[in-house]
């Protein structure tokens, strides 16, 4: 099945434009007429992933494929990787610094939110190589 494909480059540590990709995806999905709960779930999950790449991985790329029955979001970075995925998935677990916490991040709720708002979340990660997240939201 053919899909609409959107590609974004996400800069590391650039909080001035962090979230732009997610907000753009939200707008596209709205234009395409998706139900509002699908739009909300996709855009929040993507924002959490986008922010994680900015904070933890010095940026990366986001690819969003939109099908009539699902939205697939692939976020890939060449950051430090996640040594213990099970631990990272725990609510409240965060390695964020004081500076990051002062900006409102670092609650350790990003990955749990991504899991909660998507129908599938797949994490491929290798320490020293990077992280690839694949999220699917069914319509």
């Amino acid at each position: 099945m053919s899909a609409l494909h959107f590609h974004f480059e996400i800069d590391g540590m650039d909080f001035s434009s962090a979230g732009d990709a997610s907000v753009a995806v939200k707008k596209k999905l709205r234009q395409l007429g998706f139900p509002s709960d699908v739009i909300r779930r996709c855009s929040i999950a993507m924002y959490e992933g986008e922010i994680n790449m900015v904070i933890h991985a010095d940026g990366g790329t986001a690819d969003v494929m939109v099908y009539p029955d699902k939205v697939v979001m692939v976020l890939e970075d060449h950051g430090p990787g996640i040594p213990d995925v099970e631990l990272a998935m725990k609510e409240g677990y965060s390695t964020s610094t004081e500076q990051i916490r002062n900006m409102g991040f670092g609650a350790g709720m990003g990955l749990p939110n991504m899991k909660r708002y998507t129908d599938s979340l797949e994490i491929e990660t290798q320490v020293g190589v990077g992280t690839k997240l694949t999220m699917v939201v069914s319509v």
């Binding site: 909080f15 001035s16 962090a18 979230g19 997610s22 907000v23 939200k26 509002s36 909300r40 855009s43 929040i44 924002y47 922010i51 900006m103 409102g104 991040f105």
Partner: peptide, 15 residues
């Protein structure tokens, strides 16, 4: 009490 631009992004996303 947050004041940075992420407030705007979150406000948009949560609607």
């Amino acid at each position: 009490i947050m004041s940075n631009n992420n407030v705007v992004a979150v406000a948009v996303l949560v609607d």
